[in-house]
Simulated scan of single mutants.
Amino acid sequence: MSRRARRPAGWPRAAILALIVTLPVPAAPGQAGPQVVPQVVPQAGPIVAVVSQQAGVVTLIDADAAVVVAEIAVPRVPAGIAASADGRTLYVTHPDPGLVSRIDVAGRRLEASFRVGREPFAIAVIEEGRALLVTDWAGNALIRVDAATGRETGRAATGRSPAGLVVDAAAGRAYVADRESQQVSVIDIAAMTRTATIATGRAPFALALSPGGERLYVANVQSGDLSVIDTATHVETARVKVGLMPYGVAATPDRRAILVANQQGGTVAIIDAASDRVIARTRLGDYPEGIVALDSRRAAMASWAGDAVVILDIAGARGTDHIAVGAGPRSLVVLPAPEDDGPAAEGVRP
């Protein structure tokens, strides 16, 4: 049976369970050692880190040169990924083994893996790298942990099956997509309490914030649309039809465009941020998954069934490069350059 045939339309637990192995915590020395691909060109451009769920690797890509610069083995069934603000550390979730892994980017190596909740899924780095926020799909919670030790330091209740996560650091808030509750939970990070819920379309999954944090964009998998939410009022101001099963969303830094990856539709929808209107759709990759803006002109998208990362020319609504990666790429993050404030991250799906 092909990978596409055994991929269910909802939560692909059957596919995930097929990849489970028993792992010690932390990983035994040498168990998940790095597999470094020789660097072809200097890393001058943005570096994209992509999780390949079936291959059990994190791949680093120079987006300008469109080449793989490193491949790092991680524990099985990786799902979500986040980067520290200095770009030196990556964190990866593994829902079925219940692990979060920490990767030393410069050393190209897995440093440690620790247990978090029941099924850690989406992840974000907060408090200048000292802490992590992790959604627990089975525990219906957002968990704060110490980034160095993995020790839980706080927990907030969410709706059922919390998936995507995005943080507004300036406002001290986290937004969690509660997939089976058809809502977004708003979490006060300092108090680790839920302060509000916002109704969305069916099966909200991936989240993105506008550059200034004024708008929250929510990809609703089952209703095939995008909820546009005013973060000051918690009111949905628009609902935009985007395509079949949207699983990735990103906002461009220039505030002009919203990008939505439609997994079953095999397309990326480009939305004008001012009018909330779809201005282009382009077929891109095979089973599009996570998507992240590299800058205001380009984006990178994971092609799950194509085992590739595709670079998108936004203005031209076309793919410019296909970079082969390990089997089952799902979520991506851009490693910030030294002058950047932080990474642009994308949610992922159980």
Results as ranks from 00 to 15, higher is better:
132 L>K: 06
128 E>V: 03
70 A>V: 00
70 A>Q: 05
79 A>V: 15
99 L>G: 08
108 R>Q: 15
112 A>F: 04
129 G>D: 02
67 V>A: 10
101 S>I: 03
94 H>W: 13
90 L>D: 09
80 G>A: 14
90 L>Y: 13
120 P>W: 14
92 V>H: 12
119 E>H: 15
124 A>F: 07
110 L>Q: 11
73 A>N: 15
66 A>Q: 11
121 F>V: 14
68 V>P: 02
122 A>V: 03
82 A>K: 00
105 V>P: 08
95 P>M: 10
92 V>N: 05
96 D>T: 10
115 R>V: 13
78 P>F: 03
121 F>L: 14
110 L>N: 01
79 A>R: 15
74 V>S: 11
130 R>L: 06
78 P>I: 02
112 A>Q: 14
107 G>S: 03
72 I>N: 13
122 A>L: 04
66 A>D: 14
127 E>K: 13
89 T>Q: 14
86 D>M: 07
108 R>E: 15
127 E>T: 07
95 P>Y: 09
86 D>T: 06
98 G>K: 08
72 I>P: 12
111 E>C: 01
129 G>W: 00
104 D>N: 12
77 V>R: 04
136 D>E: 04
84 S>Q: 05
112 A>E: 14
134 V>P: 01
135 T>R: 04
125 V>C: 01
93 T>C: 07
106 A>P: 08
121 F>T: 12
93 T>R: 05
75 P>H: 06
127 E>N: 15
127 E>G: 00
123 I>C: 00
66 A>R: 09
113 S>K: 10
69 V>Y: 06
126 I>A: 07
104 D>W: 01
100 V>T: 01
73 A>I: 11
67 V>K: 08
89 T>C: 09
94 H>N: 06
112 A>N: 15
99 L>Y: 10
116 V>Y: 07
91 Y>N: 03
86 D>G: 01
131 A>H: 11
88 R>M: 13
103 I>P: 05
115 R>S: 14
79 A>M: 15
126 I>K: 05
83 A>I: 00
110 L>M: 00
113 S>M: 00
86 D>A: 04
98 G>P: 05
121 F>G: 11
109 R>L: 12
78 P>C: 03
133 L>P: 04
99 L>H: 12
133 L>S: 06
116 V>M: 01
101 S>A: 15
128 E>D: 15
77 V>H: 09
82 A>L: 07
71 E>Y: 07
104 D>C: 08
92 V>R: 09
73 A>Y: 06
86 D>F: 10
104 D>P: 06
103 I>F: 11
127 E>L: 02
100 V>R: 00
90 L>A: 05
89 T>W: 05
132 L>E: 00
71 E>R: 13
113 S>W: 03
71 E>M: 04
84 S>H: 07
123 I>N: 04
114 F>M: 11
98 G>V: 10
80 G>K: 00
117 G>F: 02
137 W>K: 10
102 R>T: 14
121 F>Q: 14
113 S>G: 02
80 G>T: 12
132 L>C: 09
94 H>S: 09
125 V>F: 03
101 S>T: 09
68 V>R: 01
71 E>W: 03
111 E>Q: 12
133 L>V: 01
93 T>Y: 02
115 R>T: 15
68 V>E: 12
75 P>T: 04
104 D>S: 02
82 A>D: 00
